[in-house]
């Protein structure tokens, strides 16, 4: 009974949060509602007895990625409300059409029985042991591939950020030094 109330509360909060992410006009409020959504989803994981998934959800998404989002928003100072560009009427209708289409698809998938109902997944608790065993045996290859992918992304970011050093384009200080001479 109590768990059911909690479940409905968290579902409501998650839906409310994700709606507000889209509706909010200030970038920082969008980011905060996204954090709220992440946290409520983590709570739902806990209710499903998947504590590992919940903890990772909070650590990775709420703890790391969203902090970076906030960091960028604060650095760029996106506090001022950005005016929404007025789109033409046909585009809006098209948007509505796609939105309804995607929504219908999601509902169809849910009711098609493709996703097993919640009760069956709630019974088995996923421990760290299980996850670790799977990652290091059956899914070792994809796991390593993902690591390599992330490494590539990191190197790419470094190259993009430090392009002037890589390609020999002079930095601001170098320019200043030359101007000084």
């Amino acid at each position: 009974m109590f768990l059911k109330i909690l479940y409905h509360l968290f579902v409501f909060l998650a839906l409310f949060g994700s709606l507000m992410v889209v509706v909010s006009k200030k970038a920082i409020y969008s980011a905060l509602f996204l954090i709220l959504t992440m946290l409520t989803i983590a709570s739902l994981f806990v209710l499903m007895n998947a504590q590992l998934a919940a903890a990772l959800q909070v650590i990775v998404y709420a703890g790391a990625i969203m902090v970076l989002f906030l960091f960028v928003i604060m650095l760029l100072n996106l506090g001022k409300q950005a005016p929404l560009s007025r789109r033409s009427r046909p585009v809006r209708w098209l948007g509505l059409l796609f939105g309804v289409g995607i929504g219908a698809q999601i509902i169809a998938v849910i009711y098609s029985g493709f996703i097993p109902p919640a009760e069956t997944t709630a019974a088995a608790s996923v421990t760290i042991d299980h996850v670790a065993r799977l990652i290091l045996t059956d899914y070792l290859y994809p796991f390593e591939m993902i690591s390599v992918l992330l490494l590539v992304a990191v190197i790419g970011a470094v190259v993009l950020a430090r392009r002037h050093l890589v390609q020999g384009v002079e930095t601001v200080t170098e320019t200043a030094e030359k101007a000084g001479k």
């Binding site: 946290l39 983590a42 504590q51 590992l52 903890a55 990772l56 909070v58 650590i59 709420a62 703890g63 790391a64 902090v67």
Partner: peptide, 10 residues
């Protein structure tokens, strides 16, 4: 411990 890390992250 993961709970602890999650909370400090928030």
């Amino acid at each position: 411990i993961l709970f602890y890390l999650a909370v400090t992250g928030v």
